[in-house]
Deep mutational scan, measured.
Amino acid sequence: RSRTNFTLEQLNELERLFDETHYPDAFMREELSQRLGLSEARVQVWFQNRRAKCRK
């Protein structure tokens, strides 16, 4: 699998939701992934990586 390149719109939406909650539930992830045209797994990994970045 190659690296996912997020569009600016996708990143803005992901960051907006991250500001609301660092741990979106499965329903939120599924709804977001459909809206952004990403797989739920990519959304989940993005949040994992974003939380790690936040801890640094």
Results as ranks from 00 to 15, higher is better:
residue 2 S to P: 03
residue 18 F to V: 01
residue 20 E to I: 10
residue 52 A to F: 03
residue 21 T to M: 07
residue 42 R to E: 15
residue 17 L to K: 14
residue 48 Q to N: 12
residue 26 A to Q: 08
residue 32 L to K: 00
residue 11 L to D: 08
residue 9 E to V: 06
residue 12 N to W: 07
residue 44 Q to F: 09
residue 14 L to G: 02
residue 28 M to T: 12
residue 4 T to G: 11
residue 29 R to N: 02
residue 36 L to T: 11
residue 50 R to A: 10
residue 40 E to H: 14
residue 7 T to L: 03
residue 42 R to V: 14
residue 3 R to S: 15
residue 42 R to I: 12
residue 27 F to Y: 12
residue 33 S to W: 02
residue 26 A to F: 09
residue 45 V to G: 10
residue 18 F to C: 03
residue 9 E to S: 07
residue 55 R to C: 15
residue 30 E to Y: 15
residue 50 R to G: 01
residue 54 C to I: 06
residue 39 S to E: 11
residue 47 F to M: 03
residue 20 E to P: 00
residue 35 R to W: 01
residue 2 S to L: 04
residue 2 S to K: 09
residue 2 S to Q: 12
residue 26 A to I: 10
residue 19 D to G: 14
residue 32 L to F: 06
residue 35 R to P: 03
residue 55 R to H: 11
residue 48 Q to H: 15
residue 28 M to K: 11
residue 12 N to H: 09
residue 42 R to K: 09
residue 6 F to D: 04
residue 5 N to K: 13
residue 46 W to N: 02
residue 7 T to M: 05
residue 40 E to W: 06
residue 21 T to F: 07
residue 21 T to N: 14
residue 26 A to H: 08
residue 27 F to L: 15
residue 47 F to W: 05
residue 46 W to R: 01
residue 53 K to R: 09
residue 35 R to A: 09
residue 33 S to P: 02
residue 39 S to Y: 02
residue 30 E to A: 12
residue 18 F to H: 01
residue 2 S to W: 02
residue 3 R to H: 11
residue 13 E to V: 06
residue 34 Q to S: 06
residue 35 R to Q: 14
residue 52 A to S: 09
residue 13 E to L: 07
residue 34 Q to G: 12
residue 14 L to M: 08
residue 21 T to Q: 12
residue 7 T to C: 05
residue 5 N to W: 07
residue 50 R to E: 10
residue 36 L to D: 00
residue 55 R to G: 13
residue 45 V to I: 10
residue 20 E to F: 05
residue 22 H to W: 10
residue 2 S to H: 15
residue 47 F to K: 00
residue 41 A to L: 07
residue 7 T to F: 01
residue 18 F to R: 01
residue 27 F to Q: 13
residue 31 E to G: 09
residue 45 V to F: 05
residue 5 N to S: 11
residue 30 E to S: 15
residue 24 P to R: 00
residue 46 W to D: 07
residue 37 G to Y: 02
residue 53 K to I: 15
residue 41 A to M: 06
residue 24 P to S: 02
residue 48 Q to C: 08
residue 39 S to G: 07
residue 26 A to E: 12
residue 4 T to Q: 09
residue 52 A to I: 04
residue 4 T to Y: 10
residue 45 V to E: 15
residue 36 L to S: 07
residue 15 E to V: 00
residue 27 F to R: 14
residue 12 N to S: 12
residue 54 C to D: 15
residue 9 E to D: 08
residue 40 E to R: 07
residue 55 R to F: 03
residue 6 F to S: 02
residue 29 R to W: 06
residue 33 S to K: 08
residue 31 E to A: 08
residue 41 A to D: 13
residue 46 W to H: 06
residue 18 F to P: 00
residue 42 R to H: 15
residue 26 A to P: 13
residue 24 P to E: 01
residue 33 S to L: 05
residue 12 N to I: 07
residue 20 E to V: 15
residue 21 T to R: 06
residue 51 R to H: 10
residue 41 A to C: 10
residue 24 P to I: 00
residue 17 L to P: 02
residue 56 K to Q: 12
residue 46 W to M: 00
residue 55 R to S: 13
residue 29 R to Y: 08
residue 16 R to Q: 12
residue 25 D to H: 03
residue 47 F to Y: 05
residue 44 Q to V: 04
residue 19 D to V: 10
residue 36 L to F: 13
residue 52 A to E: 12
residue 14 L to T: 00
residue 51 R to E: 03
residue 51 R to W: 01
residue 3 R to T: 13
residue 15 E to K: 04
residue 49 N to H: 06
residue 18 F to N: 01
residue 17 L to H: 07
residue 32 L to V: 08
residue 16 R to L: 10
residue 10 Q to W: 02
residue 6 F to A: 04
residue 23 Y to D: 11
residue 28 M to F: 01
residue 3 R to E: 15
residue 56 K to I: 03
residue 6 F to G: 01
residue 33 S to C: 14
residue 42 R to C: 15
residue 6 F to R: 04
residue 44 Q to I: 10
residue 7 T to P: 03
residue 35 R to Y: 03
residue 32 L to Q: 02
residue 51 R to S: 03
residue 41 A to V: 13
residue 33 S to N: 04
residue 14 L to D: 01
residue 31 E to I: 03
residue 13 E to S: 09
residue 41 A to H: 12
residue 1 R to V: 11
residue 15 E to P: 01
residue 22 H to L: 04
residue 29 R to Q: 11
residue 46 W to L: 01
residue 53 K to F: 11
residue 33 S to R: 06
residue 3 R to L: 13
residue 39 S to F: 01
residue 29 R to G: 01
residue 49 N to A: 11
residue 9 E to C: 09
residue 28 M to L: 11
residue 16 R to N: 07
residue 18 F to K: 01
residue 47 F to P: 00
residue 22 H to D: 10
residue 17 L to E: 06
residue 22 H to R: 09
residue 14 L to C: 01
residue 47 F to D: 00
residue 17 L to I: 10
residue 30 E to W: 09
residue 26 A to M: 11
residue 43 V to A: 00
residue 16 R to G: 08
residue 29 R to S: 06
residue 20 E to Q: 14
residue 16 R to V: 05
residue 1 R to A: 14
residue 2 S to D: 13
residue 11 L to W: 05
residue 47 F to L: 06
residue 45 V to Y: 08
residue 48 Q to W: 04
residue 17 L to Y: 09
residue 55 R to W: 11
residue 51 R to F: 07
residue 53 K to S: 14
residue 46 W to Q: 02
residue 3 R to G: 15
residue 18 F to M: 05
residue 17 L to F: 15
residue 13 E to C: 07
residue 44 Q to D: 11
residue 55 R to Y: 05
residue 5 N to M: 09
residue 47 F to E: 02
residue 31 E to M: 07
residue 13 E to P: 00
residue 16 R to H: 11
residue 55 R to T: 08
residue 20 E to D: 10
residue 30 E to H: 14
residue 43 V to T: 02
residue 25 D to W: 00
residue 20 E to T: 15
residue 23 Y to M: 07
residue 17 L to T: 12
residue 37 G to S: 12
residue 34 Q to V: 12
residue 53 K to V: 12
residue 1 R to M: 09
residue 13 E to R: 03
residue 6 F to Y: 13
residue 5 N to G: 08
residue 27 F to T: 14
residue 1 R to E: 07
residue 12 N to T: 14
residue 52 A to D: 15
residue 11 L to M: 08
residue 23 Y to I: 04
residue 6 F to I: 08
residue 37 G to D: 10
residue 31 E to D: 08
residue 1 R to I: 14
residue 23 Y to V: 06
residue 52 A to Y: 06
residue 55 R to K: 13
residue 48 Q to V: 13
residue 23 Y to C: 08
residue 3 R to F: 15
residue 10 Q to R: 03
residue 18 F to T: 00
residue 1 R to N: 10
residue 44 Q to G: 12
residue 28 M to C: 09
residue 32 L to E: 04
residue 1 R to C: 11
residue 56 K to C: 15
residue 54 C to N: 14
residue 34 Q to L: 07
residue 40 E to V: 10
residue 12 N to P: 02
residue 28 M to Q: 13
residue 11 L to E: 15
residue 50 R to P: 00
residue 5 N to I: 15
residue 5 N to C: 07
residue 28 M to D: 05
residue 39 S to W: 03
residue 25 D to G: 05
residue 17 L to M: 09
residue 35 R to I: 05
residue 10 Q to F: 01
residue 49 N to Y: 05
residue 51 R to T: 06
residue 51 R to C: 05
residue 25 D to Q: 10
residue 39 S to A: 10
residue 9 E to N: 05
residue 39 S to P: 07
residue 45 V to L: 10
residue 4 T to W: 08
residue 45 V to N: 12
residue 13 E to T: 04
residue 22 H to F: 03
residue 42 R to G: 10
residue 37 G to W: 02
residue 43 V to E: 02
residue 45 V to K: 10
residue 52 A to H: 05
residue 3 R to K: 15
residue 33 S to V: 08
residue 25 D to R: 03
residue 24 P to F: 00
residue 55 R to E: 15
residue 32 L to S: 02
residue 9 E to P: 07
residue 28 M to E: 08
residue 36 L to Q: 06
residue 18 F to W: 11
residue 24 P to C: 02
residue 5 N to H: 05
residue 13 E to Q: 05
residue 32 L to M: 11
residue 27 F to K: 14
residue 33 S to E: 04
residue 5 N to V: 11
residue 3 R to Q: 14
residue 47 F to N: 00
residue 4 T to L: 12
residue 36 L to H: 04
residue 45 V to C: 08
residue 42 R to N: 14
residue 47 F to T: 02
residue 15 E to Q: 04
residue 50 R to F: 01
residue 46 W to Y: 02
residue 3 R to I: 13
residue 25 D to A: 10
residue 11 L to R: 08
residue 6 F to M: 09
residue 29 R to E: 04
residue 4 T to I: 08
residue 15 E to I: 03
residue 13 E to Y: 04
residue 3 R to N: 15
residue 14 L to E: 01
residue 9 E to K: 07
residue 43 V to I: 10
residue 27 F to P: 15
residue 35 R to V: 05
